[in-house]
Design a protein around this nucleic acid. Structure first.
Lengths: 140, 140
DNA sequence: CAGTATCCCCCTCGATACTG
DNA sequence: CAGTATCGAGGGGGATACTG
């Protein structure tokens, strides 16, 4: 990478028009990229996005699919994701009302990236587990 | 992807030896892959890993490099990452003691994956911001 | 310099109950 | 079915002070 360390530091569109366009930098606490971090820092959000990958899912179905999530957290996380433009919410006026959540195109690009993480987990889980065991063993 | 939705569900090494090797599944709360999620669910951990990417860094240097982190959180997060085998801690008995933190080979493979996330943030930040503005605007 | 220890507040999350 | 409202416990994290 670069000398800064992390993100390739270029604004999304460096037109000369924008007066003070600071380059994105996760290490600055005012940087909007921290927002993405916050989003992923929510484990539930990640799981929801993952769960929506195959296709639209209804609220309670989502709830049952993600072991351990409460309806409150599910609800508020869904709202946040919708606000971020990552998922869409569609209401169908059926007899008992039906609501479907689905990935937006934007959300879909994120889940692609996230799946890279999932693969990392699959491939390196054992190494992490072993490291923990070694660390804990040595500590005793 | 697959029908399950998220991870390519295969054990890291599906030898026929292991008796009950449940396939990794993030949606199960007992699945070790949740551990990776927990790790990334810590925004500070991500920032630390990112910061270590260019090379070894000392404690206070790290602290100054990551705006907003407290020494307590830095300390405990470093310990966790070390336990997970993602970073190493080297003590140099110089006049004032010096400690360097660095990525392990394992940690390095993770930062590669994480940088994909950073690039996503760079490329899609504007879309997210726009979505938020639209959402908030419509709400009023 | 590189931490540990302590206090304390906030904010999240879970549980429960209620609504359209 | 798909949520919202309220309460209450818990823990993470910040600020500060101290140590080797």
């Amino acid at each position: 990478m670069n000398s800064q360390g992390f993100p390739k530091v270029t604004g999304p569109s460096d037109d000369k028009a924008t007066p003070t366009m600071p380059p994105y930098n996760v290490f600055e606490d005012r940087c909007p990229t921290r927002l993405v971090l916050e989003r992923l820092a929510d484990k539930w959000a990640v799981l929801i996005l993952a769960r929506l990958e195959p296709g639209p899912v209804r609220f309670n179905h989502l709830r049952r699919g993600i072991k351990g999530i409460s309806q409150k957290v599910l609800s508020q996380t869904l709202k946040r994701l919708e606000r971020d433009g990552l998922i869409s919410r569609s209401v169908f006026a059926s007899v008992p009302v039906t609501v479907e959540y689905a990935l937006t195109p934007l959300g879909r690009t994120l889940t692609e990236t996230i799946s890279a993480l999932a693969h990392w987990a699959e491939n390196n889980m054992d190494a992490v587990l072993a490291a923990q065991a070694a660390y804990d063993g040595a500590a005793v």
